[in-house]
Structure formats: structure tokens, C-alpha cells
């Protein structure tokens, strides 16, 4: 969350200052939902960034694993080793709390990277479509239309499947995370392209663009230095909502077994693993990753909703 905000805010300084002086900050302070949601997001992001420092165990280091610790319920000492784990352990004796921290890291990394990539692709294509018009616009927007016909998750699955077929089997696990990022990004860029094109079409005919053209600035400087900063606020809203969707998409794909591999488990992979122990009574292996995912997705979603209302001039 903070990552996307930071990057999209890299507009000129005066604009940033104006942004915070506006009633945007005021409406943030006066919305308990927004404050709580952003607190949750900040805590989770910090936990993910500092996972190696916070996590009591390194779940990927076989040396620290003790199979005797397997299936320890949360908060109670293990029958054999007398060790206690805050959120219990899974079948291999891995500390659930630590795996969640590392899983959160992968989930957030994939989500944020995918949205950033989608944003870059979408913004560039949207600006080009709006600025140049003609057959380029028709081509880009037709592709967008066709892609919108299919649900994003299906597109992501398909891209993942194709990429998996192309990569040699021995690299598949290593590449899975990056393939996942590209798959989710390519399934999501359309939103950005459409919004940017719509906003840029309006901006394009304003006087400042004509003035810039008159003094002989090239097409690309006008597009990226002049028009882009003025179409960023809807992009910010879409980015936040997309982040929630991307996190859920990643979790869904990993849960289905076509995402992050068990060697690099994301929250979705952890839930997939945990589902296997649902009937044997080891509920904590599934429950805690699911709660973390839910808290993350819900908070980002609420933040996105609030942002949309706060930035929408019609609702002020």
C-alpha cells in the first residue's frame, strides 16, 4: 500500500503540498474506517518488511526445523520438546507465525509489483491512446475491450499456464513468483489504461497543453510531464483497489496450486497447505494465514473505497 502511494506521489513538490493541505487530510483524520484500515496495512507492511527480524524462526532453514515439533497447537508446549509456539506449528514443525510473516512478504511483494507493473503499462498505453488517437487508439482500446470480456483471474491463469509451459521445468519453481507478477499485471492493466485515457482525453484539449505544444515541446514530454500529473488522482484510486484485487488474485492462484510454490509459500499457498489439515483438527495451520490474508485484503479494500470517495469531487 505505502509503496504504491509513494511512487504515484512522485509528482512535483508543490502539488504534493497542496494535496495535503486540501481537505484530503482532513477527511482522512475524520474517517475512523480509513485510520484503522491504514493502521492495519502499515502494521502488516512493516511486519512483512522486517519479517527476518521479527520471525522467531526461519521456516526455510532446515537446520532449525524439528519434526518432533510438528502439529503443536498454538500457545501450548509441545509434548516431546516442551517448546511453545505462539500460533502453533504445521506438519513439518515450522512455526506458523514465522511462515505467515514470510508468506505476507511474498504476497505483498507480488501484489505491489503486479500493480506497479500494471500501472506502468496501463498509464503509458492509456496516454498514448489518448494523445495520438487514430489507429493506435483503436488498436489499444480494442485489445483492452477484448481482454475485459474475460475475467482477470482467468487471464492470469492462462498467462501463468503458458509461461509455465515456456520455462524449462528446472526453473519453474524459481520463476513462479515473477511469472505470477507478470500474469497478474497483464490481467489488470486495462483498468489503468481506460481511466488514464478517459482523463487524458479531457486534459489534452486544455490550454496548458496547447501552450506547451506551441512552444515546441515534443509529444512525450507533454504526455508525461504535463498531462500525466493531472490524471494521477484517479490512477491512485484504481491502484489501491487493484492492490486488494491483486493480493486476492495472487492468493487465489497460489491456493489453486498455480502460483507461489511450496518452497516460497505466499499466504495463498499456506492456506492451500492448511486446507489439508482441516478435517484432522489442526485448524490453526489454516486459520491464521486466512485471517492475515483477510485483514490485509479487507483493509486495502476499505482504504481504496475511502480514497475513491475522498478524491471524488462530486461527493464533496
Amino acid at each position: 500500500m505505502t509503496d504504491t502511494m509513494e511512487t504515484t506521489k512522485s509528482a512535483p513538490k508543490s502539488r504534493l503540498a497542496k494535496f495535503w493541505d486540501s481537505d484530503f487530510a482532513w477527511s482522512f483524520r475524520h474517517s475512523p474506517v480509513a485510520v484503522i484500515a491504514s493502521l492495519v496495512v502499515v502494521v502488516l507492511v512493516l511486519a512483512a518488511i522486517f519479517a527476518p527480524l521479527i520471525a522467531p524462526y526461519n521456516p526455510f532453514d532446515p537446520a532449525t526445523l524439528n519434526l518432533m515439533n510438528g502439529f503443536t497447537p498454538p500457545g501450548t508446549p509441545n509434548a516431546f520438546t516442551q517448546e511453545t509456539f505462539l500460533l502453533g506449528t504445521d506438519d513439518q514443525g515450522r512455526d506458523v507465525f514465522s511462515t505467515i510473516l514470510y508468506g505476507l512478504r511474498i504476497s505483498l511483494f507480488v501484489g505491489v509489483s503486479a500493480v506497479l507493473l500494471a500501472l506502468i503499462i496501463g498509464v503509458i498505453l492509456g496516454l498514448i491512446a489518448a494523445y495520438f488517437g487514430g489507429w493506435i487508439e483503436t488498436l489499444i482500446m480494442r485489445i483492452a475491450d477484448v481482454q475485459l470480456t474475460f475475467p482477470a483471474i482467468l487471464v492470469a491463469m492462462l498467462i501463468f499456464g503458458i509461461a509455465k509451459g515456456i520455462t524449462p521445468p528446472e526453473y519453474r519453481d524459481e520463476m513462479a513468483i515473477y511469472v505470477l507478477i507478470i500474469a497478474i499485471a497483464l490481467s489488470d492493466w486495462v483498468q489503468f489504461a481506460r481511466v488514464v485515457r478517459g482523463a487524458a482525453l479531457v486534459e489534452k484539449n486544455k490550454e496548458y497543453v496547447q501552450a506547451a505544444r506551441l512552444i515546441g515541446r515534443g509529444s512525450f514530454p507533454i504526455m508525461f510531464r504535463h498531462i500525466l500529473p493531472n490524471v494521477l488522482s484517479p490512477v491512485l484510486v484504481i491502484a489501491t483497489i487493484s492492490l486488494a484485487l491483486a493480493i486476492i488474485a495472487e492468493a487465489t492462484l497460489s491456493f489453486l496450486g498455480v502460483g507461489a510454490p511450496p518452497t516460497q509459500p505466499s499466504l495463498g499457498t499456506l492456506i492451500r497447505i492448511g486446507q489439508g489439515f482441516l478435517f484432522s483438527g489442526e485448524w490453526w495451520i489454516l486459520f491464521f494465514p486466512a485471517c492475515t490474508l483477510l485483514a490485509l485484503a479487507l483493509s486495502v479494500n476499505l482504504l481504496g473505497d475511502w480514497l475513491r470517495d475522498a478524491l471524488n469531487p462530486k461527493l464533496r
Binding site: 486476492i248 487465489t252 491456493f255 479487507l298
Partner: peptide, 14 residues
């Protein structure tokens, strides 16, 4: 709306 489909399924199974 915020719950991912697969979590709804797991919840119902549980």
C-alpha cells in the same frame, strides 16, 4: 464481496 471465493468455500466446509 471482500472474502475471496476460496475462503468462503473453506469456511462453509468447516
Amino acid at each position: 464481496v471482500s472474502l475471496p471465493t476460496f475462503l468462503i468455500g473453506i469456511l462453509l466446509i468447516y
